[in-house]
Each structure stands twice: as C-alpha cells, then as structure tokens.
Amino acid sequence: MNMQADALYPKMYLYRRVVQAKLFIDTHYHQPLNLDDIADEAYFSKFHFIRLFKSTYGKTPHQYLIAVRITNAQRLLKSGMPVTDACYTIGFDSLSSFSALFKRLVKQSPSAWQQAELKRDAEIKKAPLNFIPNCFAEMNGWV
C-alpha cells in the first residue's frame, strides 16, 4: 500500500523524511538535540527543513521539541517523579528555564500541576464511581 501512496503522491518521500524527523524528536527528546542533527537526520538543509516541518505540524522543530519535552514532563510528574528529576530526565539542564516554559505552556507551575494531578488520581482510586457517568456504571452492574 505504501507503493500505492508513493505512486499517487510524488512528494510522498518528502513527507516520509519530515515524519522521520518528527519521530526522531519523539524518541530522542531527552538528548541534547540541535536543529542541525535533526535536519541532517532527515537529509534536508536547515531552512528547507524548518519550512517543511512547520507547514506539516504547525510548529517549528524547536517549538515541537519543547512541546514533546513538556508533555513527557507531565507524564513523569503524573507518575510521582519529583520536579527536579523530571526536569533533568526530559533534557533540560536548568530548573528555572524548565519551570518557566512549563508554566507558559501548561498555565500552571510544574509542582502545582503535579499536586492537582496526583490528588485527582488518588480520588479516582478512592471513589472511582465519582468519575464514571452513572448510567454506564449502572448498565454494567458496577453500582
């Protein structure tokens, strides 16, 4: 089927390279990545790459990398990891720049966000029925 898509869309190979670069960011976000590495990975010149990436994903590769890091920080914070550890694990080397970026994107500080999430998870564990629409719970015999 890939061959079929390739035959229909001659620019498919370009998409493939942009997507590979995106997947590269998705899996290597915690490493000290720079744009040249990512553009090289996709066999593009830097500026051509930024333009294509942005037209595909609506974000520059750098903006996208930050978004992936913050999303992964949220995942780690939700698992209970301390803010400082989460910051270094996702590839930031400064706690203050991590906190500032997190706050800008999530609209809450990392610790406030973490506390709220952990509190909600504890409440779900304690009283799951409060989080399930009653009709579904009744239909399944859970109440």
Binding site: M1, N2, L8, M12, Y15, T56, Y57
Partner: peptide
Amino acid sequence: CNDLLATYEELKAKGVEFTKVPT
C-alpha cells in the same frame, strides 16, 4: 488531522493498518 499525508505516513510507521490510502 491537519495534514493527511504526514499523518498517514506516521501512523503507517507506527504499524497502524490502513484499508484505504489517502484519496
């Protein structure tokens, strides 16, 4: 999605089964 060819390519790479290519 915003870009079908890119999304198709990514989901294919992740092993999602398509029954119709972007058309």
